[in-house]
């Protein structure tokens, strides 16, 4: 019974459609990660400012995404914006928007943390050697900051990839939705379809995320020594 179910994966254009769905997921994740990286770095620099007002506002922005679950944010934007401004936004656009804002906030915090954790004496020794501010940043501070940022950044990317699974809830035809469609169609012929389809999606996510987190761990141990 169970073994016959695996055929549903090979049947017809099922695999092709699943992979197309995976592409949609990957696109959303990829675009969001890129945008949040740039925004995040800018935001992070902003967060290191001495201005109490700006720090407070930034904190507020960050906490908004940390306290309200991402799915709720997706709902807020998807249903709320439509309702308030009478525009209909595609699920994908909403997803990219929300993820980018979330990513920028988290990334900003990571960047801020990295910059603030740099030992002060690095700046002093750099200045003592006669480096200009630009040179100081380029040769001393930024390489070290990147080392401190990278594990957190990769961790964030992995989390974002996992969270893309939620976009099915706002109507995006991603791999999960495609999977559900296939299951609906196949469930008469292949009762165990849902086991195999969801199992496959599970494996896909693992294949994408595991290398990222393993790479991150490797970097961390490499840089520790």
């Amino acid at each position: 019974m169970l073994s016959s179910g695996i055929n549903v994966l090979a049947e017809g254009s099922n695999m092709e459609r699943l992979l197309k769905g995976l592409l949609v997921t990957a696109q959303i994740a990829f675009v969001s990660i890129i945008i949040s990286s740039f925004l995040g770095i800018a935001f992070g620099l902003v967060m290191t400012t001495k201005s109490k007002v700006i720090r407070l506002l930034s904190r507020f922005y960050l906490e908004a995404f940390r306290i309200i679950p991402i799915l709720v944010w997706l709902f807020l934007v998807y249903f709320g914006i439509t309702n308030m401004f009478d525009i209909h936004l595609e699920g994908e656009i909403v997803a990219i928007l929300v993820f980018s804002l979330w990513g920028a906030a988290e990334m900003g915090d990571i960047v801020r943390g990295a910059l603030e954790s740099l030992p002060k004496h690095q700046q002093e020794s750099g200045k003592a050697l006669g480096l200009s501010l630009l040179q100081l940043y380029r040769f001393v501070l930024i390489p070290q900051a990147i080392r401190r940022m990278l594990p957190g950044a990769i961790n964030l990317s992995t989390r974002m990839v996992k969270t893309t699974s939620l976009v099915v809830m706002i109507g995006v035809i991603d791999i999960v939705k495609v999977g559900q469609q296939i299951i609906e169609v196949s469930s008469l012929k292949v009762p165990t379809a849902s086991f195999w389809i969801y199992g496959l999606i599970f494996v896909f996510y693992f294949i994408i995320c595991y290398p990222l987190s393993a790479f991150s761990k490797k970097l961390e141990t490499k840089w520790e020594s």
């Binding site: 019974m1 179910g5 996992k162 893309t164 999960v176 165990t192 379809a193 849902s194 086991f195 389809i197």
Partner: peptide, 22 residues
């Protein structure tokens, strides 16, 4: 590694819909 690299949604779907069929 398995649980940290897969989304909760998929885990739930697998548990609720997938396991039910077996």
């Amino acid at each position: 590694e398995l649980s940290r690299n897969t989304p909760l949604l998929i885990q739930l779907f697998f548990l609720y819909y997938g396991l039910a069929k077996v």
